[in-house]
């Protein structure tokens, strides 16, 4: 989504871009990355447009500013809406991808998209929660022709990032408001609250929608530690793909963090593989390699 259907007239001039995110912390709903870009010569006018960090603005003011920047021909924008199902899946897969990596990939994806349109990007301003120095090195390696300014609180320092934060926040709010729940369960409601784990409305939504077998609707990010607190009485689930972790085969540099992650969400303690699947133990290789066990009597 974005303004990409029309390539702006000023695309061949040196352009600046701001990138910001919304919905990183919430335990439910999508995470949104947004970029806003314009010709460098428009920078001064942009500063006068009263874009401020989206968090300091009321919702109707944000909506108003978003509509204003959409109708402004000197500005263009793009968003990447990352589905909570994808966030959970990536963070719970065998080679876990952490939220920083997902964020970096999303931001770089936006830059790629805009460059592909033929926009001459010369400066990109990015807000970050992680180490700005390392992130800048990573970005400069991928996009050597662009000058990067990576900063914490960039959304309140640079108007172009403030603008991006408005696009991100409005898109996230709308996506959550219009979210079509996957599940066909009766008595579900949509009082999600902000989605932040501490929000009382979000807490009671999670309480109302937990399920002993399935956990939660797929709107929820299962990889968030918060989820565990709702599952003291849920059914335990043992995964075949977790069982080899005990070999300690995970020796990449993220080992420490990944070890921690594996205890988050719905991953559980390692068990003997026999508990999870049939092994064909003691039979000839043909059966073993097909996990075919001989059952001489039934037991329930």
């Amino acid at each position: 989504m974005g303004s990409e259907s029309v390539v702006p007239k000023w695309a061949s001039q040196p352009c600046i871009m701001g990138i910001d995110e919304a919905g990183r912390g919430p335990v439910l709903g999508p995470m949104v990355y947004a970029c806003l870009y314009c010709a460098r010569s428009y920078q001064n006018t942009l500063s006068s447009l009263s874009f401020a960090d989206s968090k300091t603005l009321k919702e109707d003011k944000r909506e108003e500013l978003f509509e204003a920047l959409k109708s402004n021909d000197s500005l263009a924008w793009a968003v990447d809406v990352i589905d909570p199902r994808d966030l959970s899946a990536k963070m719970l897969q065998k080679n876990k991808i952490n939220l920083n990596e997902i964020s970096h990939d999303s931001a770089m994806g936006l830059i790629h998209r805009v460059l592909k349109l033929g926009v001459l990007l010369t400066e990109v301003y990015i807000d970050t929660v992680g180490d700005p120095g390392k992130y800048e090195v990573k970005l400069s390696k991928v996009f050597p022709s662009i000058k990067f300014v990576v900063a914490k609180k960039a959304d309140s320092l640079y108007p172009v990032v403030s603008g991006a934060s408005i696009v991100a926040k409005v898109t996230r709010d709308r996506a959550l408001r219009d979210w079509v729940l996957d599940e066909s369960v009766k008595n579900m409601h949509r009082n999600f609250g902000s989605g932040y784990p501490g929000d009382p409305q979000t807490k009671s939504w999670l309480e109302d929608h937990k399920h002993p077998i399935f956990g939660f609707p797929t709107l929820v990010r299962f990889s968030w530690g918060t989820c565990n607190t709702y599952f003291k009485d849920g059914a335990e689930v043992l995964w075949e793909s977790d069982k080899t972790d005990e070999d300690g085969g995970n020796n990449n540099s993220n080992g420490k963090r990944q070890l921690k992650l594996s205890h988050v969400g719905f991953t559980t303690s390692k068990r003997r593989s026999e508990e999870i699947e049939s092994s064909g133990k003691g039979r000839c290789r043909f059966f073993q390699s097909r996990k075919l066990e001989q059952l001489t009597y039934f037991q329930k």
């Binding site: 059914a235 689930v237 043992l238 995964w239 075949e240 508990e275 999870i276």
Partner: peptide
């Protein structure tokens, strides 16, 4: 690819 430690309808 997992074992759900519960026996019963869902």
């Amino acid at each position: 690819p997992c074992c759900v430690k519960q026996d019963g309808p869902a």
